[in-house]
Each structure stands twice: as structure tokens, then as C-alpha cells.
Design a protein around this nucleic acid. Sequence first.
DNA 1: GAAGATTGATTAGTCAATCTTT
DNA 2: AAAGATTGACTAATCAATCTTC
Lengths: 159, 159
Amino acid sequence: MSHAEPTDLPMEFEDKAHEALVSTWWTGTLLKKAFRRFFRKAVGSEAQFNVLMVLQAAEEAGEDLNQNDLSNRLMIDKSNVTGLIDRMEDQDLVRRNTVPGDRRSYHITLTPQGRELVQQVQGPYIEKVHQAMSEFTADEQEELTRLTSKLRERLTELI
Amino acid sequence: MSHAEPTDLPMEFEDKAHEALVSTWWTGTLLKKAFRRFFRKAVGSEAQFNVLMVLQAAEEAGEDLNQNDLSNRLMIDKSNVTGLIDRMEDQDLVRRNTVPGDRRSYHITLTPQGRELVQQVQGPYIEKVHQAMSEFTADEQEELTRLTSKLRERLTELI
DNA sequence: GAAGATTGATTAGTCAATCTTT
DNA sequence: AAAGATTGACTAATCAATCTTC
């Protein structure tokens, strides 16, 4: 009894709009699952991977990010950032740097180990991404980006 | 500093495959956020909403689901189902029914209150779905479903 | 031994309340 | 008062280990 394949949606649909939304939703869920093990092994978790990527991009752009900035970019609660950075500091991946002139705030930066880890992980990560997208034509890739971005625009109004 | 809109992806992309994957991922994340408050108010949480929907569909199909079945359909760990059903039992939304002939297992069914809640919530839920999808043409809806389903197929092989 | 379910540990996420600094 | 960060309570999710029943 109940032998639904993970590819299947958990329901049947007559409503095409509903189906498109649930299909996108479910794909997001599946994406997290498919990459979870990889992130877990490589850097601890998806959340920590995202922090590393954003910090690296900021570093290249010459920006300083505090915890609020991370909270905004990653769309996670600032209270969540506290624990995340705690755990990453314990692993010597990032550092809280005092900010001259504002004792409320910390600039979060990569440690050498954190920078090293980002470099190591990037290759295998991109390879996995390409495995996932291997059946897509260039047009399909662009169309998927366009449609999901369009949905995102609408969703930000509803939040 | 750092004024990324939620619609924006947290990085820039040259790699189209990568962009499509992250765009889908991010949209899934945003979908959860956009519906979170609604689910929270209406039925406690997204996870509990999903349980209610699956149970209702099973009821209509005349199927009996145990916790393992729920674990499979909802793609969540069975240990997770235990706590979820605990909390929903506390709220009198579902019931654990002993299964004649197998004392290891429970059939999970909706209580009258659970059934009632599903009925009440369905209308506002679908309305919110249509708000989210309001800018999409019928063709775009179908294409979004097709592309995300295609990605899902590939992902199940990678899990 | 395998199946169904539970428990405990860990990470993540939200929310409300709080604390310090501005 | 507002900004930046933290704390505590809660839900959710996974994983490994365990327990009972098959």
C-alpha cells in the first residue's frame, strides 16, 4: 500500500495553477534532499554552505557583512544567524570581527580554513549541479529560470 | 549595505544550468515562507497541513495509511512522523487506530474536527495559490509543471 | 531477521522578549 | 526610540539506536 515514487506529487490535480505551484514546491523540497548529504559531508549543512558562498562573494566584491546582512541575503531570521555563526566559529570556518566605531555589530569573515573549504567544495558542487541539470537544453534552462523568477516576484508581494 | 530584494538570488551567475537550479531552489524556499504564516494560523504548520491533505485524499480513495505510508508520501523520516502525529493528536485533528492483526502498526485517520478543518482551510488555500499564480498564462503554468517535473525525475536518481 | 514505531541527539528555522549600543 | 545581536521556547527534519511485533 502507498508506493508513491518521490517523483510523483502527493496528490492528483485538475487545477493547473495549483499543480504548477505544488510541482515547484515539491521540486524545491527534493532539491534540498538531493543535496543534503553532499552539504552535510562537505561543509556541515546547506545553511553553512550558503553562508560560506555569500561570504566568499562578499569578499570578492570587497564588502563587509554583519549578521543582519547575512540574515537578509540568506532570508533567514537574525536569531538563526547567531547559532549558525556560533557553530561555524567552533569549526574555525568564520570569525566575528569587532567593528571599529560600532560596538553592537560584528563583521563576519572567512578564516583561511573557511576560504580553503570553499575552494575545495566548489568543484564537486558544480559537478553535482550539472548532473541534476544534464537533461535540460539551454532553452529549457533559461525558461525554468524565467518562470521561477516570475513566480518569485509575485511571492515577494505576498509575504 | 546589502539591500538584496527577496526576489534576487544571493549570487550572480554565468553558468545557466547553475542559475536555473538555484532559481528553482530559491523559489521553493520563498514558497515555504510565503505560505508559512497562512499554514501556521490555519492548521499549525505546513507539515501538519500536508498530513491533513494526504489523509483526506486517502479517505476519499478508501485507503488506510499507517505512519510508514505517511513517511513515504510526504517524504519525511518516519521518526519525524511520530512527533507530528503526537502534536496533531493533542489537537484532536487525527487519531492513531489500532490495526486488527498487526499490533506494531497504527492506521492514522482524521477526526471529525480534522475533517472539518480541512474543509474550512481548502478555500482560502486555493485562493492564495491563485494569487501566487495570477500572472501566469495557462501555457506558462503547464511549462512550469513540465520543467519542474523533469528536474524532479533526475533528482530522484541522484538521491 | 525484518517491519513499524519510538527515543535521543543534533541542526535548522521562527517568534517574542531582552540587552546593549547608537 | 531604533539597530544589532542574543536568548529561550517551540516546530520540524534527519540519523542512529532501540523496542516490540511479525
